[in-house]
Design a protein around this nucleic acid. Structure first.
Lengths: 157, 157
DNA sequence: CTCTAAATGACAACATGATGTCATATAGAA
DNA sequence: TTCTATATGACATCATGTTGTCATTTAGAG
């Protein structure tokens, strides 16, 4: 009665999923280490990067990052309290203020980007650009497929 | 002064890292959905699976899962309190009890495994076994490389 | 055997992110 | 215009996982 309906492809996906989840931890920690000298973390870095890409509301940033609105709001409020971003009035929406980086925020983000660049270059060189891009493309596909089939056993939601 | 020392390989690694972190969320949610009908979650499922693979201490399971000992301990204590696992005396270590699944735990794990199998089979078939295995192999390499270079800017620890 | 270092579980504090709820603001249909 | 559905921020609660600290246990050097 073991392995109900195992198939090679199913096993391959399970192995893939497990390795992705397993890599997430060290990656986040590496990001934290890159951001730490500037007093930041992986999560704050992501929000700073989103706001720097273009002034946007918290909800916009959450969509861009694939995260829940509420979590990004929490980070953004911390960044605002510490003077790394500011909420600018949004002409098209009274409540949804736009996040913009302050000079302090720009400095922090720039410092982190510099550290990140040399780190990523070193790892990218060791691992091979081609394989990394293939893997990124596959992961993007998986995200798309999971978006279509939101979750197994999910009732009609 | 933008993009300090960008290279294609560095960009590829950054893109890869971002996609891995972005996939982690939906994957965990999918795992939660698979485990929910049995009253479990992704995290509890992982611990159950580890203990089912072979009786082992909490510290063993943490190493096997690549997680901090303390977090696994928390989950294991919950599973024990709810009767899904039991702590069995360890002949070789007075404090490090061995986790073993109870009948309840075995039933729950089996149910989850059945759901997981058909789900993974469907996704694995859609995405392609070969690419999934290539990606898994790359991810394993990344984990290894990150283990060697624990973290950028990490002093001597 | 003795002493030191490592391993282990217990506990606490914290960061991250999901989920749910509410009031208000916006957009679009009628 | 009015009405309804959606979007947004504000709050709360919870699950997960890290880090740090401590006492106890184990293993190994000497």
């Amino acid at each position: 009665m073991k392995d109900p309906d195992r198939t090679p492809a199913g096993d391959a996906f399970a192995e893939f999923a497990i390795s992705v989840l397993r890599l997430a931890g060290p990656l986040t920690q590496a990001g934290d280490a890159l951001a730490k000298p500037s007093g930041q973390t992986s999560a704050r870095w992501q929000v700073l990067a989103a706001a720097n890409h273009a002034p946007m509301s918290v909800a916009d940033a959450a969509r861009a990052l694939g995260l829940a609105r509420q979590g990004v709001q929490r980070i953004a409020d911390l960044l605002e309290a510490e003077g790394l971003i500011a909420y600018r009035d949004n002409p098209t929406h009274q409540r949804a203020k736009l996040m913009v980086l302050t000079a302090t925020g720009e400095t922090a983000l720039h410092e982190i980007k510099e550290r990140q660049a040399s780190w990523a270059d070193s790892l990218g060189g060791a691992l091979g650009e081609r394989r990394l891009r293939q893997a990124s493309a596959l992961i993007a596909e998986v995200i798309e497929v999971l978006k279509e089939r939101p979750s197994p056993e999910a009732p009609e939601d």
